[in-house]
Simulated assay, not measured.
Amino acid sequence: MLGQGLVDVFFEDGLNWEADLLEDTRFVMVETTAYFEAYRHVLKGLQEIEEGQFPFEKYIIACENEVSPPKYLRNRRTVQFDLRPLVDENIVIREDEALRRQRRIVNYQFSAESRCAESVEILNLRSWPRPDQLHLDQSQYEALQTALTKEFVVTQGPPGTGKTYVGLKIVKALLHNASIWNSGHQSPMLIVCYTNHALDQFLEGIDSFFKGNIIRVGGRAGEDMAKHSLKVKKQALRKLQDMRQIAGVRFNCTKSMMEVKLEIERSGAQMEASEREILHEDMLRPFMDNCYDQMTCVELPQQQEIPSMMVEWLGLEQMLGETQVAVQQGREDDNLHDKQEDEIALSKRICNASVRLSTVTTKFVNPTIVLTTMPVHESSLLTSSNTTSVECHGQQ
């Protein structure tokens, strides 16, 4: 059809323009060297932006030259950045979710040379470390300062001037000081590159010094960046959700098994009790239906107490009463027997405590002491000028 000069025209958004078109209506075709479908959604998004909503409108559209500091640095007297990771290039930034929830920071082993970059007043360019301390030349140093102190920056230069190197420095500084610009942890860092290869190359640089959550959106990811692709992240999340569901099912099954086990033990205890005693009607209620109400609603004579209506229904209340009397009599006999045994034991202790009296007489014969034992019939204490008698109680 194109060879004949015919082109199919399709109107999106459900607009019924065909009824309003005339046969001699002219159209203008706009072609692009790039594949249109790849940019369809971007252009669609631009069409939906209303006036005043375009990001950085005053710089891109109004072309203002005076660029303001980032919003998180405005209306604050002093903001200090920790730029030590730019001095110690071997430092790897870690994202610890557990420490973040506890409002704690990750500890790093910085060198003594990095102390000059520990607390840098970011808007005061005079407080910054020297370019050589940050491993930058003068132009790279100025690009880094501008990127961290302005909200809209364009860094350009010929190949080999270190644009990617400076970009990685900027990302590393922002990630290490995320508590300043992302205190609520609700604003991810968005990195957009023109080609998939450029994106993979930049993400590989970030992956070398940052161990945290990186998500790569887009197709044809490199082998090293495939682990960060959105597809892999979705699969991991889906697997985690499946594991949580399995854990939930396992918990419910374990809970059900424990309930069944307790029910079996309870039923076993009731069966054992039925072999040695009469079961109470409350225990048999689930199996009695209306009979339970009929049994418990029976009026008993005054001053008659029956622990179970099942006993009366079986006609065993008289036997139960005799059994209770016999048990009570047996308890009284046991108490009497125990009392008699206690009295006999007390008498034995009194008899064992009774001993014959003896007197140990110590005669002091100067200078020799002679000890003699003399039996006496009464408890007495004999004293004289030459002898001293000491009474002691003991069993002869």
Rank of each mutant, 00 (worst) to 15 (best):
L190E: 02
I105V: 05
M271C: 11
L314R: 12
L125Q: 10
K261Y: 11
G330N: 15
V390R: 12
F209V: 05
D293R: 11
L237N: 15
T323N: 15
D293C: 01
C351Y: 12
H393N: 12
N366L: 03
T33M: 01
V120Q: 02
E259R: 15
E259G: 03
R84L: 05
A62H: 15
N196F: 00
G218N: 01
H185V: 05
G3P: 04
P70C: 12
V365Q: 10
E305N: 10
A112F: 07
C193Y: 02
E343M: 11
V30Y: 14
T296M: 15
G160T: 04
K58M: 06
L174F: 04
R103D: 13
V360C: 06
A34H: 12
R130F: 03
L21K: 05
K348D: 13
P375G: 02
V42A: 15
V106W: 02
R101V: 00
I122R: 06
G162L: 05
D8A: 13
D242T: 08
V154T: 09
V192D: 01
K363T: 07
I91P: 01
G45T: 04
Q4F: 05
Y141D: 04
G315A: 04
N75T: 03
D334N: 15
L237V: 05
G315F: 03
H393G: 08
E113F: 05
R84P: 10
I246Q: 15
S183L: 07
I246W: 13
I91C: 04
S379F: 02
K348L: 15
T149W: 04
I49H: 09
P375T: 04
T372N: 11
F202I: 03
A117F: 06
K348Y: 13
V327W: 03
V30F: 12
A247G: 05
K239P: 00
A117C: 03
G5W: 11
V30N: 08
E97A: 14
T149S: 15
L237T: 12
L381S: 09
D200G: 07
G268Q: 13
A173S: 10
F209A: 04
N177T: 07
R244Q: 14
L15Q: 07
I278C: 09
D20M: 09
L320F: 12
E305G: 08
S119H: 13
Q109I: 02
M283P: 00
A117I: 06
D334V: 11
Y194N: 12
Q241E: 15
V217D: 08
S256H: 10
P188R: 08
Q133Y: 02
E378V: 08
T362L: 14
D88S: 03
N90R: 14
L314E: 08
V298A: 09
P131N: 02
L134V: 00
Q270K: 11
Q235Y: 13
S308H: 03
V360F: 07
I180W: 09
Q102T: 01
L237E: 15
N124M: 03
E23L: 09
M271K: 12
